[in-house]
């Protein structure tokens, strides 16, 4: 099938009107796909730059786990949409304002502590979300969640252990962790704050009730921070949001430029 470059999208600050999807679940599955893809790409930026070989590999492993999960979601999303787009079209030929990932996962890597805090805040949500999706009404989502659950369990273990070691490590590691948490905490709340579209799906029972995930997330957060001797952040966690509705930070555009470069430059390229 011949491919073509889509018409240039104006870079506007407001999200475009969501297209009418064939299946109400399509935007949600796309959101899951975007979230895993963008975080996978961020983690892949560490490849060859990890603080030690062991962690370089660990970061790349997690990136690949998330990329695999993203592919499953994109394939399913393409099927739900039913307009002939493929997983590659969805990943490589959409602009920043069409992406539906929460702001947290597009934030730059920063130093290792910054990456760990971002990962931990995401993993703590991801793990509980998959647990809920695994028992959800949609068989395909449940199957993807079942497969990804083992990986996410390890991711959460890995990032939790690092939170503890950086927090209760040296004065420098602690200072870096504190700084990262101060910056990234404001993005944590978006993960569990439903958008109007998510609320509709929650009312239909198609999307897990995020409020039900919070007690377990908060318990694990409190446990890890206590072990890390880090005080619980006191500022509200819902300060920054909009990513799930296409209102992104400036970072996503740069990320997509690199991620999509090959398909944008050589449309339809395969190897």
């Amino acid at each position: 099938m011949p491919r073509f470059m889509p018409a240039p999208q104006p870079e506007v600050s407001v999200a475009p009107t969501p297209s009418v999807a064939a299946n109400p679940l399509f935007p949600f599955v796309l959101q899951l796909a975007d979230t895993s893809l963008i975080l996978a790409h961020r983690l892949s930026e560490w490849c060859g730059h990890g603080p030690i070989l062991e962690q370089d590999l660990a970061l790349a492993n997690i990136a690949l786990d998330l990329l695999g999960e993203a592919r499953s979601y994109y394939q399913y999303a393409a099927e739900l949409e039913g307009k002939g787009r493929t997983e590659d079209d969805l990943a490589y030929l959409r602009s920043a304002v069409e992406y539906r990932n929460p702001l947290l996962v597009e934030q730059p890597n920063g130093d290792f502590a910054h990456t760990i805090v971002r990962q931990f805040l995401f993993d703590n949500f991801h793990y509980e979300l998959l647990k809920a999706l695994k028992n959800g009404p949609d068989a395909q989502l449940a199957a993807i969640a079942e497969k990804s659950m083992k990986e996410a369990t390890y991711h959460l273990k890995w990032s939790s252990e690092w939170m503890i070691r950086l927090g209760d490590g040296t004065p420098e590691s602690r200072q870096r962790l504190d700084k990262a948490l101060a910056v990234l905490w404001r993005y944590a709340g978006e993960l569990t704050t439903p958008t109007p579209a998510e609320t509709n799906l929650q009312e239909l029972g198609l999307v897990p009730d995020y409020a039900a995930l919070l007690p377990a997330m908060q318990a694990h957060l409190a446990h890890v921070l206590a072990e890390a001797t880090v005080p619980m952040p006191t500022t509200p966690a819902f300060a920054q949001q909009g990513g799930k509705q296409g209102r992104h930070s400036e970072h996503l555009g740069y990320l997509l430029t690199e991620l999509q470069y090959m398909q944008r430059t050589y449309p339809g390229l395969t190897w």
């Binding site: 070989l53 062991e54 962690q55 590999l57 660990a58 390890y154 252990e161 070691r165 490590g169």
Partner: peptide
Amino acid sequence: HAADAVMAVQNARDV
């Protein structure tokens, strides 16, 4: 290399 035993097991898993 690892800071402690728990991390050594995790690193071994990853490597």
